Computed example of a mutant assay.
Amino acid sequence: MKKRLVLWSSLGVAALLATIGAAWVLSLPPAPDVGAAPPIAKEEADAMLAALKPPKRQRPLIAIIGINDATETTDYLMPYGILRRADVADVVALATKPEPVTLYPAFKVVPDMTVADFDTRHPDGADYVIVPAMSRDDDPTVLQWLRNQAAKGATVIGVCAGAKIVGETGLLDGKLATTHWYYLDELRKRHPAIRYVADRRLVVDRGVVTTTGITASMPMSLTLIEAIAGRDKAEAVARDLGLPHWDARHESDAFTFTRPFALTALANTLAFWNREQLGIDLRAGADEVSLALVADAWSRTYRSHAVTFARTADALETRNHIRIIPDKVATNWSAEHLLPAIGSQRPAQALDQALQGIATRYGMPTADLVAMQLEYRR
C-alpha cells in the first residue's frame, strides 16, 4: 500500500495510520540514528555557485509562481522575502489567475501579476523561476509555463515538493535532484530517470535546482544571492535573517517516519475537540518570512491553526511589499489564543521561538512533529 502522509491535511494522517494499522506504526524506528553531515568541499560549493550565475541579466529577474487555490505558505513567501530584502534582483510573485492566492496552511496574498501578464511584460522570460509545493502537480498552465521559461533560458528552482511539479514538466529527467523527505519515493517512482542525491539541501544540475523540505528555501535563497552578488552580500542578508551559517549540507537520514512522529500525529489528529484557532495580529511592515514560518509551524501541530486578523479587511503590505489579506477583521483577540507579536523579529529566531512555544503548549513530541514536517534540525 502506498504510504502517503498528506502534509496538506491532518485527516490524511489519521486515515493513513488507521488503514495501515498498529503493526506498521510499531515497526517504525524510535528515532533516526544519524550523525553530523560532513562539510561541503570547496570545489563542490564553487561549482554550485558557478552553475547558479545569472543566465541573462546583470540584475536578474526572479519569478515565483503559485496556483490560486493552494500553494505552500513558506515555499512561496520565504524566497520572496529573502530575495527582496537582498535587493540584488527584481522579484515578482505570480499566480495562474487574476485573483488572490490562497496559501497553505495559512494566509491569502495578492500576487504581483499573472503568468500571462508576466509573459506580456517580459517576453524573453525570467532568469530564475521558483516553484513552490502546490496542492496539485499537474496544473497544465504551470507545467507549460515552466517548460516555456526553461526554453527561454531560465533556471528553474523546485523548492521542497515543488520538485514534483518540475518533475512533471520533464525538466528533471536524467538529472540529479532531491525533494522533501516524504515525497522522495513518489518522485523516484514516477520519474525513474531522476538521479537522487542524498545529504544535500539543494542540488543543481544543468539549469534545474531542487531542494529538500520547507526550510531549505532559506539556504537556497542565500546561495542564490551569493551566486548573484557575492559572499559578503549573502552573509549580510544571513545576519539579517538571524542565520549564522549555511551551506548545502544535510543529514537526509534524520528525516523519516518514526514511531513518535506517527503516534503524535495520530493522537493530535484524533483529539479534535482540543483544536485551537490561534490569532496573528497582522500589521503593515511585518517581516513576511517570519510570518510565514510562524504561521506554518503553528498550523502543522494537528492541534492548532494560525489565522491573521487586522483592523481592516484591506490587504496589508509587509516589509518587502507582499500584500496579505487578513483572515478576520478584529481589533483584538483572546489572550489565551493570541500568538506573540512578530513585528521585525528575525526569521530564524521566530521559527525557533515558535517551536519552543509549541513544545510548551502541546509537548516536545508535537514540536518534533512540526520540525520533521518542516525538515528542520533543531
Results as ranks from 00 to 15, higher is better:
residue 266 L to Y: 12
residue 99 E to V: 06
residue 292 A to E: 03
residue 251 E to N: 13
residue 98 P to H: 06
residue 217 S to N: 10
residue 201 R to F: 01
residue 361 R to I: 08
residue 154 A to C: 05
residue 218 M to G: 03
residue 205 D to V: 00
residue 185 D to T: 13
residue 178 T to S: 08
residue 175 K to Q: 07
residue 82 I to T: 05
residue 65 I to A: 00
residue 360 T to K: 15
residue 284 A to V: 02
residue 149 Q to G: 06
residue 147 R to Q: 12
residue 221 S to I: 01
residue 71 T to H: 10
residue 121 R to D: 12
residue 17 L to H: 07
residue 23 A to L: 11
residue 186 E to N: 13
residue 220 M to V: 00
residue 57 R to G: 07
residue 353 Q to P: 12
residue 183 Y to M: 13
residue 143 L to Y: 04
residue 165 I to M: 04
residue 42 K to D: 14
residue 280 I to F: 07
residue 164 K to T: 13
residue 265 A to W: 10
residue 289 V to D: 02
residue 150 A to M: 08
residue 87 D to E: 14
residue 286 A to I: 09
residue 178 T to W: 06
residue 272 F to S: 13
residue 14 A to K: 14
residue 165 I to S: 05
residue 170 G to Y: 01
residue 95 A to H: 08
residue 175 K to M: 05
residue 257 F to Q: 08
residue 62 I to L: 04
residue 22 A to W: 14
residue 294 V to Y: 02
residue 125 G to H: 05
residue 338 L to W: 05
residue 37 A to Q: 07
residue 342 I to L: 09
residue 317 E to C: 11
residue 331 T to G: 07
residue 19 T to F: 13
residue 361 R to W: 09
residue 18 A to P: 11
residue 302 Y to F: 15
residue 192 P to D: 00
residue 77 L to C: 03
residue 189 K to D: 15
residue 320 N to D: 13
residue 299 S to A: 02
residue 377 R to A: 12
residue 318 T to I: 03
residue 283 R to I: 06
residue 257 F to W: 12
residue 88 V to M: 05
residue 202 L to I: 02
residue 68 N to A: 15
residue 120 T to D: 13
residue 294 V to P: 05
residue 210 T to Y: 01
residue 185 D to Y: 11
residue 291 L to D: 02
residue 313 A to G: 14
residue 149 Q to N: 09
residue 175 K to F: 04
residue 43 E to I: 11
residue 225 I to F: 02
residue 105 P to Y: 05
residue 60 P to G: 02
residue 38 P to I: 01
residue 31 A to N: 11
